[in-house]
Amino acid sequence: MRSIAALFSMLMPGVGQMYNNQFVKGVVFLIIEHYDNVFGSINKAIHLDFNGAHAEALKAVDYQHLLFYPGFYAFCVWDAWFHARAGADKTKTAIIFLVGGFLGEFAAIFSTHLPIPSLTCGLVMVIPMLAGMFIFRKQ
């Protein structure tokens, strides 16, 4: 199912590709995701942020790696969702995922001004992508 591939990719970029039997691409995406996550201290920042240490979370994250992540994440979700159905319209379906990636980038850039940065960045990415999956479910 198309939605399952996208949801797997939302949980861990690369797993949706593996679900679609694109194992090499999935492993490459997993490696890129782990590299970016480890060197950007993204999980550490999420942990600190969700436990109320918002200022510490902002200090812990490496923005050079963080700013790559939203676009990569949105692409991984779209790629898993798009390739799960043969003959889907690439142009139309990509638009809403691009919007999610851009919103995630802007949220990451302005994260110092957000009350709960990691949650806000995640939600502004995921909500448009879920909406796009619903809107373009017939594509």
Rank of each mutant, 00 (worst) to 15 (best):
M1L: 14
M1P: 12
M1I: 14
R2V: 04
I4Q: 14
A5I: 14
A6V: 04
A6Q: 07
L7M: 13
L7T: 06
F8P: 02
S9E: 02
M10I: 14
M10F: 15
M10D: 06
M10S: 06
L11R: 03
M12Y: 15
M12F: 15
M12Q: 05
P13V: 09
P13I: 02
G14D: 04
V15N: 02
G16K: 13
G16C: 05
Q17R: 07
M18T: 04
M18I: 05
Y19W: 08
Y19S: 06
N21P: 00
Q22K: 11
F23A: 03
G26I: 02
G26F: 02
V28K: 15
F29W: 11
I32G: 02
E33W: 12
Y35E: 10
N37M: 10
V38L: 08
V38F: 10
V38A: 03
F39D: 01
F39M: 05
G40I: 10
S41N: 12
S41E: 08
S41M: 01
S41W: 04
I42Y: 06
I42H: 06
N43M: 09
I46E: 05
H47N: 13
H47F: 13
D49E: 15
F50K: 01
F50Y: 07
F50L: 03
N51R: 10
G52I: 08
H54F: 11
A55T: 14
E56I: 08
E56T: 06
A57M: 05
L58C: 13
K59W: 15
A60C: 15
D62I: 15
Y63A: 11
H65V: 07
H65G: 10
F68L: 12
F68D: 10
P70A: 06
G71D: 01
G71T: 11
G71Q: 09
A74Y: 11
A74S: 12
F75I: 03
F75Y: 09
C76S: 13
V77D: 05
W78E: 12
D79Y: 04
A80V: 02
A80E: 04
A80M: 02
W81T: 10
W81F: 12
F82Q: 11
H83P: 03
A84S: 10
A84C: 06
R85Q: 04
A86E: 12
A86W: 03
G87Y: 01
G87E: 01
G87C: 01
A88I: 01
A88W: 00
K92I: 07
K92E: 08
K92W: 04
T93S: 02
T93M: 02
I96P: 01
F97C: 00
L98E: 00
L98H: 00
V99C: 03
V99I: 08
G101R: 04
F102W: 00
G104M: 03
G104Y: 04
G104F: 00
F106R: 02
F106I: 05
F106C: 08
I109E: 01
I109A: 05
I109P: 00
F110V: 03
S111I: 01
S111H: 04
L114H: 09
P117F: 06
L119A: 06
L119V: 12
T120M: 10
T120R: 12
C121I: 11
L123G: 11
V124C: 04
M125I: 13
I127C: 04
P128A: 03
L130E: 08
L130T: 06
A131D: 09
F134H: 11
F134V: 14
I135F: 14
F136P: 03
F136A: 00
F136V: 00
R137F: 04
R137E: 10
Q139L: 13
Q139N: 14
Q139I: 15
